[in-house]
Design a protein around this nucleic acid. Sequence first.
DNA 1: GGATGCCATTTGTCCATACCTTAAGCCCTG
DNA 2: CAGGGCTTAAGGTATGGACAAATGGCATCC
Lengths: 270, 270
Amino acid sequence: MSDSGSTAVAAGEGPRYARIQRVLEERVIQGTYPVGSLIPTEVELAAEFDTSRFTIREALRYLRENGYVERRQGVGTRVISAEPHSTFLQSFGSLEELFQVALDTWFAILDTQRVVLEPEIAELVGGLAGEEWFRISGVRWTKPGGQPICYVQSFIPPRFEEIIPSLESHQGPFFSLLERHSDGKIERAVQEIRAVPMPPEMSRHLGLLPGSWSLQLLRRYLTESGVLIASFNWHPADQMTYVMNIHRSKPALDDNLGPGQRVRSPSRNR
Amino acid sequence: MSDSGSTAVAAGEGPRYARIQRVLEERVIQGTYPVGSLIPTEVELAAEFDTSRFTIREALRYLRENGYVERRQGVGTRVISAEPHSTFLQSFGSLEELFQVALDTWFAILDTQRVVLEPEIAELVGGLAGEEWFRISGVRWTKPGGQPICYVQSFIPPRFEEIIPSLESHQGPFFSLLERHSDGKIERAVQEIRAVPMPPEMSRHLGLLPGSWSLQLLRRYLTESGVLIASFNWHPADQMTYVMNIHRSKPALDDNLGPGQRVRSPSRNR
DNA sequence: GGATGCCATTTGTCCATACCTTAAGCCCTG
DNA sequence: CAGGGCTTAAGGTATGGACAAATGGCATCC
């Protein structure tokens, strides 16, 4: 189609570095520069395109930011992928957005216990069977005395023993308080979503009939020293939809659709 | 705490642009440069830090990439946020990752129909009540004659009428074929997750008892000209967990945990 | 008073050059 | 043959300059 690849500055519009960037990108995608190989050095490319090293670096910056190449001082620029990295994203301005409801709602603790992890639970919360963790159970409400939203059980590893009492009077998400008393910041979170029968005790607390079902959200917040907290949230199936927005490339900056969960209008029963 | 903010090059290690970058970031966070205001020009900052414009630009690049400021030629650098943009994100190398199972599994079409959208469905798929869309129903299997994984209903807007026949023999996800015949690329996808009773007809096709429950995933793929396709996936509740990984700042490049869904081992019954 | 055009300001692009840091390979030495 | 030091090559950081392009305000002209 085009005769790009010739040494003449590539056809096209826009600044020089952008044109060179497109040529280099195509060479990577086409395999002219195979994955795993080193592409020509900055000086060589500058000579080929009859430009300065500055302009070449600007073009290579794009290739690096899009995951095509990695660059190392003393080595060179190596192709690591023939296609761009991460074309779709879901973004969260903060971890609270994962749990957006927390801000407008009210949480009542029912009890706090030391519990020994059974093998099944241990696997889910990220601990070892037999360890003694803390378990805080409670119900989230729209407002004090209002509608129940979900039943919550949070499992907290034993190393936070001193913090447990202060959690009971804490406003806001538990993980943010724990993060302040932890070595490192939260690096990662994992969320698992299932449909499970609502356990009888929880049905009672939420005012549901026995045998009803729930959408269960399990979130583990992880620091470099391990699990910070793992929380189960049982939502009545007919009141909960988990919604997520995935964007191409760059998330819209002004997108306040509130990624995360939304409570379904209670009219839709079946 | 520190005496940063003085004109002397900020204490700290690393290259000059990185030190300046930290100073400027702090000024934005602290409100020394209020949101909405213009910060000093590149030339002024270069004079303040006794460095070149290049170094200042390198520092400002960081502020821009992290959503603190926006820059416009002829205007200047304006503070748009006192906190970094998008501190957590979930990344997808491709849209197929949302639906990772599709690659290793096999889809059997049960029927294709023109259907008039009822108001309730119309809202979910992103169409208007009364429109005539196409509905393709089928079952996804581990392999031909193997275990059923989920029941699928895909709703496709009328403008793709000519494509419908070729979908029946198409390998791979429908949306990728539709995208090729569409005006624009897929810009956005929305996924909604619910726990709903498995409709009786689908229970039969999946070999389940009546009254069983499902984890329902609804995905809408959107281009600039509207909905490309909307698919409902009903997974037997005890065989499905939807797992998502959220990372701080930069997604791990070598993270092949396979974000998306995983089929739970069938041993875990209750 | 309103439209138009000019001009100063500010960031965007680009150049030539220099030195530093890192990495890898080579050679010399023990 | 092994180890350490030297050389070389590459990208990383930095300077100082120059011109281009976009913007917004000001002055001017109708």
